[in-house]
């Protein structure tokens, strides 16, 4: 079982000798095979949450556990998809996807079978030997997602993975991700600032306050998705026009709005 537990997690940053709090007393759980999205105003510490689950940063207080183990360092059981794709520019599509499997010491034949399967799964056939800079942003992010999925990680950590894509590509990728998580459900922690993306993808949405980030509310989307049967719709825009979807999205939007700094003129 792979879950992620945040237990009374706080994080302070030091800058110019001053300490300032980024995250305060955050507790929540991403259950096994649950898709949880964190939304919040910029600078509220949502990316910090993900980086702590990845083992790239550590809490100042409290505890982050993945599959029962306190996170002490990064590892392939907690694969990260970065907003900037973070593909190795000097490796081909195939070599990028294969990278983590080689780290695990998997035999070559087995690696080839797995890489090929994930190239097909992400619709990257024919691009095996292309270099990242030869691909569009959407294709690059497909490679990055394949590079994470191929490791069969216990949890997937996605840090605004579609933030750098244009609106149409983003929509396609969101539909792909839903499809992928049907075929192969994973424990996912997903960071975004787009409320409709969070509601469309996630089972639950964690809403953070502005800095220092605290949990404002945790919204259960899965229950609504089930009762309203959103999954009968294939297209994102069909889901998004459901009154139940609009209702949830507006509710979260209001929570974020109340976090806005009053404008100073």
């Amino acid at each position: 079982m792979s879950n992620i537990v945040f237990e009374r997690v706080s994080r302070q940053f030091q800058r110019d000798g001053l300490q300032f709090p980024a995250l305060e007393d955050v507790s929540f759980e991403v259950r096994d095979r649950e898709f949880v999205a964190i939304v919040g105003p910029s600078g509220c510490g949502k990316t910090t949450c993900l980086r702590m689950a990845a083992g790239l940063e550590f809490p100042s207080n409290g505890n982050v556990r993945v599959a029962g183990q306190t996170v002490t360092r990064p590892g392939p059981d907690r694969s990260v998809v970065f907003q900037q794709f973070a593909l190795f520019p000097w490796k081909t599509v195939y070599q990028n996807i294969e990278f983590g499997l080689r780290g695990k010491g998997m035999a070559q034949a087995q690696r080839r079978e797995r890489v090929t399967r994930h190239i097909e799964l992400m619709g990257l056939q024919g691009y095996d030997s292309a270099y990242p800079h030869q691909l569009s942003g959407g294709m690059q992010q497909r490679v990055a997602i394949a590079r994470s999925y191929v490791l069969d990680p216990g949890v997937l950590l996605m840090d605004e993975p579609f933030g750098a894509l244009d609106a149409q590509t983003r929509t396609v990728m969101q539909e792909e991700l839903i499809r992928l998580s049907r075929v192969n459900p994973r424990t996912v922690l997903f960071i975004t600032h787009a409320v409709d993306e969070a509601v469309y993808l996630a089972d639950r949405v964690v809403v953070l306050t502005r800095r220092p980030g605290r949990i404002r509310e945790i919204v259960d989307v899965a229950a609504v998705r089930r009762t309203e049967n959103w999954d009968r719709h294939e297209r994102i825009e069909e889901v998004m026009e459901q009154p139940s979807f609009v209702h949830l999205r507006t509710g979260i939007w209001r929570l974020l709005r109340e976090q806005q700094q009053p404008a100073r003129l």
């Binding site: 990064p74 973070a86 190795f88």
Partner: peptide, 24 residues
């Protein structure tokens, strides 16, 4: 982020040097 990606993909020390630091 490339170094972080390599670390979270479970790169060995040798892979980090030969396949990330040197080509980078």
């Amino acid at each position: 982020y490339l170094i972080e990606a390599a670390r979270s993909l479970g790169a060995t020390r040798g892979m980090m040097v030969r396949e990330v630091l040197i080509p980078g």
